[in-house]
Every structure is written in structure tokens, then in C-alpha cells.
Design a protein around this nucleic acid. Structure first.
Lengths: 119, 119
DNA sequence: TATATTGATCGGTGTTTTACGATGAATAGA
DNA sequence: TCTATTCATCGTAAAACACCGATCAATATA
């Protein structure tokens, strides 16, 4: 075991820079906060869109909500387009599609059928 | 809109303390790091189990790996049982089941079929 | 008994995250 | 033009995170 030729890696044989894994981590990390989950849920329900809509229903300062929106935007899960003085936030179909694939892939990764024979 | 009776909330009408949402966030947050995704993948593949197995293939210090294992354990996704001087880590069927439900629920939350008519 | 090995934990460092209030730019409406 | 309104961003503080080396307890093994 541990047959290792020189791979150029500093140590170990798993590439933590692998873009696919990093992307999966970025997407799940973006989901990993109650506020962001709440925002995404509201966006999915379709009757909210503007930053003010979120601050109205979330017990947080406007600046805080704005920062969470920024995280979601940077992860590619939502878009933010200026509409006059306001910004309309929407689920980004591309990011959501990617998220969908990621979630499906994760589900496949932990196939619950073949567990429970460890330790 | 914004019909609000006194709910005891400090502000807004969304309860960020909602256990279900918090749990979803905890689980996705646990997935939100390349190292933890790698560890879970290895555990799913079933030929690794001990902390040393992970440090062998990950370009990280043993203490760092141990800490990631701790996060995964605290999230309920893995178990760690002492076997003599070593600890055998395994996917926790209960946690994985819960994760499965969470992922399915998230997929349902962002139904890709009815997007793209925003902004 | 003495020595390895295993891995948990401690302490420290640097970075990131979360939160807030304040401010400022852009626009809409009076 | 003056005044809201909207929300992005800045500055800041506290907490959490990611990483490391060092150490320690527990157990194997010699």
C-alpha cells in the first residue's frame, strides 16, 4: 500500500486544489448559514426580490443582510441586477443548476444502502 | 403586506433559531470545506478508517486532520470509536440519513423547472 | 519495563466570518 | 432642486476557522 511516485504534491496524494471539489465546497459552504438558507428560500418562493424585502423579515441590520447577499452572489447562486435605486436579487439558474448537480452528486456519494457494516 | 402580530421576535418574522433550518445549515456547513469533503469521500470508499489513513493522503498536519474529523463528528456525520490505540472513523448512518434528507429537501427547495422568469 | 505508535488536545497565529452603525452614491418623487 | 429611499461599502469588533508544532495519554510491541 501507499505506492507513491512523485506527483509534485507537497505531501499526500489528494489534491485539495481540485476545482470540482473546491466548487462543491464553495456551494455547500454558501448554504451553511441559517440566514442564507432563509434568503434562498424566500427567493425560491418568488415574492421577494429586493434587499429591503429581506431586512423586513430578518432580525438583522440591513448591512448584514447585504453581506449575506454578497456571499450568495459570489458563490454564483444568485444574481443582483440594479433596477433604479434598488437591486433585484434572483436565483441564478446557472448556479442553481450547478448546485443541483452538486447535491445529486453528494447524494450519490453517500449511498445510504451500503453503510452500517463499519466498526 | 407585512401583517405582523407580536411574535416575541426581536425584529422580522423569520425565526433564525428554527432547529430544522439550523440543522440544515450545520450539515451543509460541515460539507463546506474541501478537506472534509475529501475525508467523507474516503470514508464512503471504505478502505480508510483511521486518522493516520487520512494524514497519509492529505497534505496536512495530523492535528489539522484531527480537527476536521472533530467537526464532522460534531455534526453527526461520522462516528469515532476507539480500537485500542487507534480510532476508527465511520460514516454515521443516522447522520448520513439526515444529510440525505437535507440534500433532497434542498433540491426540492430549488426546483430548477420554474426559474428564469425573474428580472 | 522501555520504546513505538496513534491520535486527541493545547496554545498560538493568521485569516475569515458575522455582525453592527455610519456613510455615501444613485435614483425616485415632491 | 430638495428630500426620501435604497442598498453597497467602509470601519470596527468579536467570534469562529484553519492551520501548525508540541505535548500527553493510551496502548501496542520489543
Amino acid at each position: 500500500m501507499n505506492i507513491m511516485e512523485d506527483t509534485g504534491q507537497t505531501a499526500g496524494s489528494i489534491d485539495l486544489e481540485d476545482p470540482s471539489t473546491r466548487r462543491k465546497a464553495q456551494l455547500t459552504k454558501a448554504l451553511g448559514h441559517p440566514v442564507r438558507l432563509a434568503i434562498l428560500k424566500l427567493l425560491g418562493e418568488r415574492d421577494t426580490c429586493f434587499c429591503g424585502d429581506f431586512t423586513e423579515v430578518l432580525p438583522l441590520a440591513q448591512s448584514t443582510v447585504s453581506q449575506h447577499l454578497k456571499v450568495l452572489k459570489e458563490s454564483g447562486l444568485i444574481t443582483g441586477t440594479n433596477q433604479g435605486v434598488r437591486t433585484c436579487y434572483c436565483l441564478d439558474p446557472n448556479g442553481i443548476q450547478e448546485l443541483h448537480q452538486t447535491l445529486v452528486s453528494l447524494i450519490g456519494m453517500f449511498d445510504t444502502s451500503n453503510l452500517s457494516d463499519c466498526c
